[in-house]
Computed example of a mutant assay.
Amino acid sequence: MDLPRIFTIRESSHRIHNPLTGAKLAALGEALHLAPGTRALDLASGSGELLCTWARDHGITGTGVDISTVFTERARARAAELGVAGRVGFVHGDAAGHVADRPVDLAACVGATWIGGGVAGTTELLGRSLRPGGLMLIGEPYWRRTPPDEETAKGCHVDRIADFLPLPDLIGSFQDLGYDVVEMMLADQDSWDRYAAAQWLNLRRWLDLNPDNELAPAVREELTEEPARYARCTREHLGWGIFALMRR
């Protein structure tokens, strides 16, 4: 049970595995007015930056669950680096279906709603761990500009235009599920650039060190095609944000 190796190669230098910068993640933590001792669960926690930095900056505690062995070890190292290993822990496992042993104050899935089969299923899954009145965080793409055709959507690594919604409709979908949207932090084109372009340098450096690896042809193809595809499709059309929700 693990992520495909190409993913960990692509994002080997990333602390945040989505198009949100560290500054934006910190600003979101400030905006939520997190109280010391807030107990959190982060499903698909990646390299643990949300839990680790918020434990350092706001005194939260909690657990992250992620399917990647590489990222889970990196999260544990980050917790030790920031001096918060006693407050946050990271479990290697499948976040799909994971429920906390007791209700938490903050339940998050930032950029991996496939663990619940989409937004609706993931809110239901997180809701099973969340105490009444607690905060839920969902990270999800949306259409900043709706693609003109399905080919452009595929260039954004999206199967169909219908797979994502424009921002007003995404917010409306949370409301339809019975939640108030109480805060949001959106990526912009610059933060998208920092996320995407860092992947290209990771790919190139890996290629230089591993020219004869069996993955080298696939990595070379991605590095050759991805920058122009990103500039043409994702950068122009796809938005991304973290949305804070409270059940009505």
Rank of each mutant, 00 (worst) to 15 (best):
T8A: 02
H14Y: 06
N18M: 12
A23C: 05
A27N: 08
L34C: 14
L43A: 09
L43Y: 09
G46I: 05
E49G: 02
E49Q: 05
T53R: 08
T53V: 08
W54G: 00
W54L: 11
T63K: 01
D66T: 06
V70N: 03
R76Q: 04
A79F: 06
A79Y: 05
A85P: 05
A85T: 05
R87S: 14
D94C: 12
H98R: 14
A100Q: 11
A100M: 14
V110C: 05
V119R: 01
V119G: 02
G121S: 00
S129F: 05
G139P: 05
P141C: 11
E151A: 15
A153I: 04
A153N: 09
G155M: 07
C156S: 01
P168W: 02
G172D: 11
S173R: 11
F174V: 06
Y179P: 06
Y179V: 12
M185A: 12
D193N: 15
Y195W: 15
L203G: 01
R205L: 12
W206D: 00
L207Q: 09
D208P: 01
D208T: 03
D212P: 01
N213P: 06
N213R: 00
L215Y: 11
T224S: 15
P227Q: 11
T234F: 15
R235P: 09
E236S: 08
G239K: 12
L245I: 12
M246D: 05
